[in-house]
Simulated scan of single mutants.
Amino acid sequence: MKKIRLFIARHGQTDYNRRGLLQGRGIDAPLDETGFRQADLLSTYLSGYDTDGLYSSSLVRTWQTAEPLRKAKKMDIVREKDLDEMHFGEFEGKPYLDAARELDNIQKFWKRGDLDVPVPGGESPRQVFDRANAAFHDIVRKFSGTSLVMILHGRLIRILVSEWLGMGLKNMHKIEHQNAGINQLVYDGSFKAVYLNKTDHLVS
């Protein structure tokens, strides 16, 4: 199989991020002023590379982050619903601090390998990985280029990258992410990391 350079970036900041509110698949919040600035800086960095495909989730915060790069590269953004963020169920829209105790209890299950345990009213890590991993491989099957940019979400990035790099989903909490941070991977049937959570492009 040919080698694909894969850039996976997290979306820019939203008001939910700024206020510490949980924001999953069911919250379709736009970028805030800081988020739009981060999107421009992300585009400036990624414009230095060839881009044969530009993908986002179906949620507004990802395709708004991809928009400056779309304009720079004069290409379409393909929005893929199966690349949406994890559904955090009854916790969505709540302050993280209010839900932290319950989330910590759920994450104890995940850290010991019980990855089919869902968030109440939401998804499990295994469900999220299965849908997003299938979407990625469907994209690759149809993809004729060698460089692919995907603008995604924090928890989703943790889930995909931890499993793709052989760490296992139970170690997804070890994958760091920041708004508009970039992970560069190489895919040729298996995944190798070039760098993870690069953020120096955001210093302007």
Rank of each mutant, 00 (worst) to 15 (best):
I4K: 01
I8F: 10
R10P: 13
Q13R: 13
T14H: 08
N17Q: 11
L21Q: 06
L21H: 01
L22I: 15
G24D: 01
R25G: 13
G26R: 14
G26A: 10
P30R: 09
L31T: 04
L31I: 07
E33A: 15
F36A: 10
Q38P: 04
Q38M: 08
D40V: 09
D40L: 11
Y45L: 13
L46R: 03
L54W: 14
S58H: 03
V60A: 12
R61C: 06
A66Y: 04
A66D: 05
A66I: 10
P68G: 03
A72D: 13
A72P: 00
V78M: 02
R79S: 04
R79D: 00
D82G: 00
E85V: 11
M86I: 13
H87M: 01
H87P: 00
E92T: 07
K94I: 01
P95M: 02
Y96N: 02
Y96D: 00
A99I: 02
A100M: 08
A100K: 14
E102Q: 13
E102C: 00
E102K: 14
D104E: 14
K108E: 13
W110C: 05
K111W: 01
R112P: 00
L115P: 02
L115I: 15
G122Q: 08
S124H: 06
R126K: 09
Q127V: 04
A134V: 04
F136I: 11
H137F: 14
D138L: 03
D138S: 14
R141S: 10
K142G: 07
S144D: 14
G145L: 12
T146W: 00
L148F: 09
V149W: 09
V149Y: 08
M150N: 01
I151R: 05
L152M: 15
L152R: 06
H153W: 05
H153E: 11
H153S: 08
H153A: 04
G154N: 07
R158M: 11
L165M: 03
M167W: 13
G168D: 10
L169R: 13
N171E: 15
I175E: 06
Q178E: 14
N179W: 02
G181P: 11
G181Q: 11
N183I: 09
L185I: 10
Y187C: 01
D188R: 09
D188W: 07
S190Q: 10
S190R: 13
A193R: 13
V194W: 01
Y195E: 08
N197A: 06
N197M: 07
V203A: 12
S204W: 06
